[in-house]
Each structure stands twice: as C-alpha cells, then as structure tokens.
Design a protein around this nucleic acid. Structure first.
Length: 352
DNA sequence: AAACCGGGGAC
DNA sequence: GTCCCAGGTTT
C-alpha cells in the first residue's frame, strides 16, 4: 500500500502525544531491563494484558535475571506458567536464556538476527525488544497494529493472508520514526487496545478521527476482514480426582512434545474406571478449537488408575508448585467444592 | 501455505 | 454462542 507523507507526519505527531497522556501504567513500562521486557513480550504473545498481570511480577520475582532463568529446572518455569497457556513459550524462554548466557555473555543482543535465533522470538518480538528496550527504529506488527493500520487507511484485507501481512510489515516500517520508536510502537498497540478495539471502537474519542479512512467511509465495523478459523467441535470428558490415604491427588504427566507436553493432569475416568467414584460436578473448558464438557468424579482407596507413563501423588497445598493445566485446576476445584458441601450437609454432595 | 499450540475476556 | 488477544514453530 502507498502511504502518503502527510499521514506519516500526522500519525507520528498525534499518536505519541496521545500515548503520553493516556497510556496505562503497566509493570513492564517502568523498567529499563531488556530481560524484563523480553519476558513480558513472550507472556503477551496471543495473551491479554489483564491475564499477564497475574503472572509477570511472580515470574520476575522468582527469575529476576537471565542467569536465574537459565539455571532453573524447566518444571519450575512451567509451574509459574501454569494457567497462562501456550506452554512451549515457557520452554523456549528458558532455553533461550541459556543461549543468551552462553553465546552473549548473559546480555540480550540488539542485533535482529541474533534475536531471531532465540527460540520463541519471531519478527514481532524482535522488533518490540529492539524498539522498546534498545531505542532502535524497528517496526512491529501484531493484531492491534494490523487493525489500526487497516482502518486508518480504509483497507479490507484479512490477517489470514500472508502476503497481506507482509505488506503491512512494510507499512509499519515506513511509519516507525527514528526518534523514540518504542513509544511510537507502543502507541500503535495502546491505541488498538484502548480505542480502536475489534468490536465497538471508540471512534468519537479517537486521537486520529479527523483523518481515519474507515470512519470517513463508514466501514469501521467491517474493517479489517475477519481472519479464517477452524470450526469448533465439542468433546465430552470425565476426569477423576483420585486421592490416597493422606489426601494427596493422583496426577499423570502428559508426553513431551505434543499438546500440553510435559504438563501434569488429572487422569481420565469415571465411576466405571474407579468403583465407588462419586460425581462431584461439571464444567466447560475450551482449548484451541475444541470445547470440552467435563464431568468430575471423586474417588479414593483401591487400585489407583495410574495407567501407562509417569504418575505421582501431590498434596493439595503443593499444587501451586506443579505445572498443571487449567482444566486440571478447574477439576480439582470442582471436587474440593463438592467435598465441602458433603461436610456441611452429609448425603447432599451434589452427586445428582 | 497450513496446521498446531491455551486460555479467557468481551460481546 | 463468536471473536480475538503485544505470535511462533513446524510440516
């Protein structure tokens, strides 16, 4: 797409001014430590700011620098990542920390190819680190930037088209200024997150409403075109909260490599698998394009349903130190709530 | 180019 | 219910 010099000047003038006055006070904005920014960028991949806020401080408190992260057991890193999703990010981050220590003397490199060589660092994350942490005039393109550029220049392409994305990268490269490129890039994202939102954008209070192409042509709601997605499918599952004599819970480790690789989970099972099991309740959980309808059963005593592979007993109060999935955390919560009900009103355990 | 990889908030 | 979020890697 051709971007006229007037639009470049306009965006470079208006956006940073708006950003300085309206930006959120986020924890990674107060630091000048490139490692801390790197951690935040990995956590923020496909993940909302509000979600990352629950993890960022705890992670940096436990792994304050690249050396601590490089030296940590990967299961400790995964435990702090538990619930954040896309667990390969945590494995890559820890692996990359080791590369930074060995190859770069413990200092995050500024060179783009050096950054792209780190596992988990792609074109976006390299641009974010270079512009925000190092003040280098490098472009970024994420979902926010794609949307605000599409709307401002009144374009209807979809993110799903790789050729389109490449053209938007070139647009982002033309727009980013030499002076304070990090503020400009963050202004683009903050604008997309707070004003030019996917649904119901706040055009009336938008800093660039005077020159927005989509607003002028009344096409904000249809712009950009939605990305293509696989259809959702429903899956029914049963989870078993199986306790030993000490009240510890049986967990099984998922095989490395695949979905949720290496994470610990409740075993699959119902009353058929564990005689005497009691139904505790149910919940819904979505992973990627699958919606799970999960029933939770509670059992203790007898033969534990260990199955093949690695398994262990974990006390409830120690679950915080284990890399468990959100579905497992929900299932254990359902079982605990049912147990509480049974103690209060024996015979009414929510089994119905 | 397409598939795969979590989870949750907003609507 | 749907959409999408400070994306990256693998095939």
């Amino acid at each position: 797409m051709t971007i006229d010099p007037g639009s470049i000047r306009y965006l470079r003038t208006v956006l940073p001014r708006w950003y300085r006055a309206n930006r959120r006070d986020l924890p990674w904005r107060g630091t000048s430590d490139p490692y801390a920014l790197w951690v935040s960028e990995i956590m923020l991949q496909q993940t909302r700011v509000a979600t990352v806020l629950d993890y960022y401080d705890r992670f940096l408190d436990r792994f304050p620098g690249v050396d601590a992260l490089a030296a940590a057991p990967v299961d400790d890193v995964l435990a702090l990542w538990s619930g954040l999703g896309y667990y390969r990010r945590a494995r890559h981050l820890k692996e990359a920390a080791g590369i930074v220590v060995r190859r770069h003397g413990g200092v995050l490199p500024e060179d783009e190819d050096d950054l792209l060589a780190l596992p988990g660092v792609g074109r976006y994350t390299a641009g974010a680190i270079r512009s925000i942490a190092f003040g280098i005039s490098a472009p970024i393109l994420d979902g926010n930037v794609f949307r605000v550029i599409a709307r401002f220049f009144a374009r209807m392409e979809s993110w799903s088209d790789a050729g389109v994305r490449d053209r938007y990268w070139r647009a982002a490269a033309v727009l980013v200024p030499r002076a304070r490129p990090g503020d400009f890039n963050q202004a683009l994202m903050e604008w997309g997150a707070l004003v030019c939102t996917p649904a119901a954008p706040a055009c009336a209070s938008c800093p660039v409403r005077r020159r927005c192409g989509a607003l002028e042509n009344d096409m904000v709601a249809q712009c950009p075109a939605p990305r293509t997605r696989p259809a959702m499918r429903s899956v029914r599952r049963s989870l078993l909260v199986f306790s030993d004599g000490a009240g510890r819970i049986l967990l099984r480790r998922r095989p490395e490599g695949g979905r949720l690789g290496g994470m610990w989970e409740l075993p699959e099972g119902s009353g058929r698998d564990a005689p005497g099991a009691v139904r505790s309740g149910s919940f819904r959980h979505s992973i990627m394009n699958e919606r799970y309808d999960v029933e939770v059963f509670c059992a203790s005593g007898g033969e534990p349903p260990c199955g093949e592979g690695e398994w262990t007993w974990v006390a409830r109060e120690e679950l915080g130190g284990w890399p468990i999935t959100s579905m497992t955390r929900k299932g254990i919560g359902i079982a605990a709530a049912a147990a509480t009900r049974r103690r209060r009103r024996p015979g009414d355990g929510g089994e119905a």
